[in-house]
Simulated scan of single mutants.
Amino acid sequence: MWFEDCKSFLSTPIHTTVKKLQPIEIRQIRRTRHEKLFNGLIEHHHYLGYTQPVGEHLKYICFSAERPIACFAFSSAPYKLLHRDRFIGWSAEALERNRHLLAYNSRFLILPWIHVPHLASHLLGKCAGIISADWQTVYQHPIYWLETFVDTERFKGTCYRAANWQFLGNTSGRGKYNKTHKQLTSIKALYGLPLVKDFQKMLCE
């Protein structure tokens, strides 16, 4: 009911520029009064819906004039990713020891009534600048690397590339537990973003 009550306020269209939308505030809202709002927005407007993250995770809502415009969720990174692991160059032992220093962007939503060119890449850049400190506050350790999958049947990954995320490779589409060589799911593009210059040293040692 709470979501329906505020829906008309939330969904009034905004057509503007990033500059005119300022100031934009990105708030980490896990364990706050805004967490239900985040869950409802993702459930209603993200094509994957809402699922409760497991392990370490943070949730963000981006506000302009106290009005939500976008949502991010980050969680613990997948255990093994061929393209990522080759790019980082770490051993199996280093992966086991340091995987908690990576975060996976599991949800990214620009609300459908927000029409602002270049907003997505702008928000990705701002979030990359604050997430390590937020992770340190909640989990007592920093983050050195971000990663995400982009469904190539739905998106081109333009905003991630514009925000300096690196394309690392495509999945096979066979799924996690598929024992055949047939494509069963859509091809996903893997993108990664180092948060510090010496990320390989920090992750491989």
Rank of each mutant, 00 (worst) to 15 (best):
M1A: 12
E4F: 13
S8T: 15
S11G: 09
H15N: 12
K19F: 08
L21W: 06
I24F: 01
I24W: 04
I29F: 06
R30F: 15
T32P: 08
H34K: 14
H34P: 04
K36H: 07
F38V: 00
G40K: 06
E43L: 10
H46W: 01
L48I: 10
T51A: 12
Q52W: 07
K59W: 01
I61F: 08
C62Q: 05
A65C: 14
R67V: 05
R67Y: 07
P68F: 13
A70L: 02
A70G: 04
F72V: 00
F74G: 07
S76T: 15
K80G: 11
K80M: 11
L82H: 15
L82G: 13
R84Y: 01
R84G: 01
F87M: 08
S91V: 00
A94N: 04
L95A: 13
N98R: 14
H100E: 11
A103H: 03
Y104D: 11
F108K: 09
I114Y: 04
P117Y: 01
H118S: 08
A120L: 06
S121T: 00
S121G: 06
H122I: 03
L123Q: 02
L124Q: 12
K126V: 05
I131G: 03
S132F: 07
A133K: 11
T137M: 12
T137Y: 08
V138L: 00
Y139V: 00
H141W: 02
I143T: 03
W145Q: 03
E147Y: 06
F149P: 07
T152F: 10
K156R: 14
C159N: 01
Y160V: 04
A163I: 05
N164H: 15
F167E: 02
L168T: 04
L168D: 06
G169C: 01
G169L: 08
G173N: 04
R174N: 04
Y177K: 12
K179M: 10
A189Y: 01
Y191K: 06
L193F: 08
L195T: 02
V196F: 02
K197T: 14
D198K: 07
Q200G: 08
Q200L: 05
L203Y: 01
C204E: 05
